[in-house]
Design a protein around this nucleic acid. Sequence first.
DNA 1: CTGAAAGCGCTTACAG
DNA 2: CTGAAAGCGCTTACAG
Lengths: 341, 341
Amino acid sequence: MKKTSLNDIAQQLGVSKTLVSLVLNGKGNEYRISEDIQKKVKELARKLNYKPNQIAKGLRTGKTNTIGLIIADIANPFFGKLGREIEREAASHGYRVMFCSSDEKAENAKLQIEMLQQGQVDGFIISPPNGSEEQIKQLKNSKTPFVLIDRYFPEIESNCVVVDNLKASCEGTEHLIKNGRKRIACITTNPGMLNMDNRLDGYKKALTDAALEVDENLIKILPFSHEIKDVMEAIKELTSLDENKIDAILFTTSKVGVMGIQCLHLLDLKIPEDVAVVSFDDLDAYKISRPSITAIAQPLEEIGKHSVKILLEAMTDKSKKKELHKIVLETKFVIRNSSIK
Amino acid sequence: MKKTSLNDIAQQLGVSKTLVSLVLNGKGNEYRISEDIQKKVKELARKLNYKPNQIAKGLRTGKTNTIGLIIADIANPFFGKLGREIEREAASHGYRVMFCSSDEKAENAKLQIEMLQQGQVDGFIISPPNGSEEQIKQLKNSKTPFVLIDRYFPEIESNCVVVDNLKASCEGTEHLIKNGRKRIACITTNPGMLNMDNRLDGYKKALTDAALEVDENLIKILPFSHEIKDVMEAIKELTSLDENKIDAILFTTSKVGVMGIQCLHLLDLKIPEDVAVVSFDDLDAYKISRPSITAIAQPLEEIGKHSVKILLEAMTDKSKKKELHKIVLETKFVIRNSSIK
DNA sequence: CTGAAAGCGCTTACAG
DNA sequence: CTGAAAGCGCTTACAG
């Protein structure tokens, strides 16, 4: 069952592989190759189940029809769903996707980008970890097309697709305030990452706008790679404050949110009676949880579609003056039982 | 910023690319190339930041160091986590992974396999959809190494890594019986798929072993691509049975389970008081749900490790008498509040 | 209308 | 110890 190559077809038909290649690539008419021969070539190709070797094609044309996707962790539902959307959109344009989980480590992302850059992919969609500025700059210098998602580096001009984190976070916090919460905590992580910083800023802005004090004691910034014990500690501290205890928490990621809700359950704190909860990212878990959890949902399908489209444009646009796109999408605030009276 | 090739190094040093290739592939000593030259080559390679073009290498050697992963849906947490484990294990052996979501459609899997088979991957890890027997047979005929996961086709001899679905399901059902449940329903899907059929059989076996009647009215088999309304309908039927109502449900997938739990909530049925719940696959959602949900957890890390190892073995073993491996792993039963009195 | 030839960037017998 | 050459399977100027 050896695979059939262009040559096999050419030999059997007694023509050159040039001709076969031309016909099979739909350039038969363009080169005015006789209908008769075209038909024969196509028939034999079908009969021998010919499939062009993409690797050889890639070497020759410099195109692989593959996109490199670098995200934090494909097992994280947020990235899993986003990955699916990207895969779907890419497939509809004839592209495949190679995925790499960086675990938010710049070192990993660096290796993965370098690896895939060796002729393996035509471009990248990247959720860049903290500290990967240099890598992204190099990517840019090397003229490899890419688009950043979820976050970006303001000092590096590049394509990117993100959501309005500040606004989203502000909206979530305002909602808690409107529902009578006064001592609202924020548990976040990955400081220095733009999206996270913006979410924290949005929280602060909402408080300030409502003439509430921004109490630094109510802000817990978890270490980079956080575990449930870190979340537990943060919540214990927040709920054992001497004066008035907290009455709400805004979680800036669903990973922290899931852990946080587990902790609240373990501590026998009632949601929303004791502590109201709003979390970034909408999960299945939030829908079936009792109480259901109010969430700030990101438009995953749109992020996927936009990022692929922009990338394709950058990959195919031969003109030197490539336009950079910065897309900022809106989130959707889904009010459930965890945050209302 | 053109990429540097073997030739660039060879020319600058005034040696042949043969030599450069040899040195850079660590065969310098084997071919007794002088230390001096070896050093020069390596230094220049580092200086020029030389990275071999994997595509060219692949064309020449017929190896891509890439694994094709075909699963139902990367956005499904089960496959997302499994994908992560496979990625991790593959990376530790220097392999990348290309993933494709088949949506459980044989047609999609067929196209994806054919696409990647054109020199793009060295082997496959596949969770084969219903009706993809022919495709798998062809894959086998073409001598492409592959391993099936999650399910397999008994009539096709192949590598596979699965769990003991019958036993797991039996165990889950027994647990419900031990906790005093008598009218236990089973909501399942994808009939004809071996893993699903085994799960249903395990449910029946547990009932029979406990001398309970297997009531076909209590078994709901959802259509292939199911939506929440299908689940809702099934549950409504189950809970409105004239005689004695059901007092427990075994969900054979977490996708059905999540929907089912939502429906129970919507119908104001109390878990576990009115209906006890056990579900296949352990999700974050099940941990934070109130009540927490008893789950049959699959050993994702083990599945990932085994499948990659077996595949690598099949890909590297040059001897003709390749051994086929069939690995059956144990699940872990995690008892939570949804199933106990 | 069709074919011979070059070349993408590598590796690997083969020769000396 | 080192190099010239062939070849992996394609595509694409170029020539006729």
